[in-house]
Amino acid sequence: MTPAIFADLQHRHAEPHRAHHDWARISGMLAMAEEVSHALSDKPAFILAILFHTAIFDRANPEAEAQSIRVMHRHLGRTLPRHMLARAETLIHAVLRQEAPETDDPGLRADAALLLDMDNAVLGETAARFDAFEAANRHEYAHLPDDRYRAGRIAALQMLLWRDRIYHTDRYWLEREKRARRNIEYALVQLEGR
Score class of each variant (00 low, 15 high):
Ala4Leu: 13
Ala121Thr: 03
Pro145Ser: 04
Leu108Arg: 12
Thr90Arg: 11
Gln158Thr: 15
Leu76Thr: 05
Leu116Ile: 13
Met32Thr: 03
Glu15Asn: 11
His38Arg: 14
Ala155Asn: 07
Ser37Pro: 07
Gln190Ser: 06
Arg74Tyr: 06
Phe52Met: 04
His93Leu: 14
Met72Gly: 01
Arg59Ala: 14
Gly77Asp: 11
His13Thr: 14
Arg182Ser: 10
Trp173Gly: 10
Leu96Gly: 04
His168Ile: 00
Thr126Glu: 14
Leu9His: 14
Leu30Gln: 14
Ile184Arg: 13
Glu134Cys: 06
Leu91Ile: 05
Arg182Lys: 09
Val122Tyr: 02
Asp164Lys: 09
Ile184Ser: 12
Gly107Ile: 04
Glu34His: 15
Tyr141Gln: 04
Arg163Val: 01
Asp104Phe: 00
Ala45Gly: 13
Ala66Val: 09
Ala14His: 10
Tyr172Ala: 15
Asn61Met: 04
Ala66Arg: 12
Ala49Met: 10
His93Cys: 09
His73Ser: 03
Arg109Tyr: 11
Gly28Met: 08
Ala64Gln: 14
Arg176Thr: 04
Thr103Pro: 00
Phe52Glu: 01
Met32Asp: 15
Thr103Asn: 01
Arg138Phe: 03
Ser37Tyr: 01
Leu123His: 06
Ile154Ala: 07
Thr169Trp: 04
Val95Ala: 06
Leu160Phe: 10
Ala151Thr: 11
Ala112Asn: 00
Asp119Ser: 07
Ile26Asp: 02
Val95His: 09
Ala127Pro: 09
Ser27Arg: 08
Leu51Ile: 06
Glu89Ile: 04
Tyr141Arg: 02
Ala142Ile: 01
Phe6Gly: 06
Ile69Tyr: 00
Arg150Ile: 06
Leu40Pro: 06
Arg87Ile: 00
Gln158Trp: 06
Glu140Ala: 03
Arg74Gly: 09
Asp104Asn: 09
Leu123Pro: 12
Leu123Trp: 01
Asp117Asn: 06
Ile5Gln: 11
Phe46Ala: 10
Glu125Val: 02
Ile47Gln: 13
His139Lys: 04
Phe130Asn: 01
Ala132Asn: 07
Pro3Lys: 07
Gly28His: 11
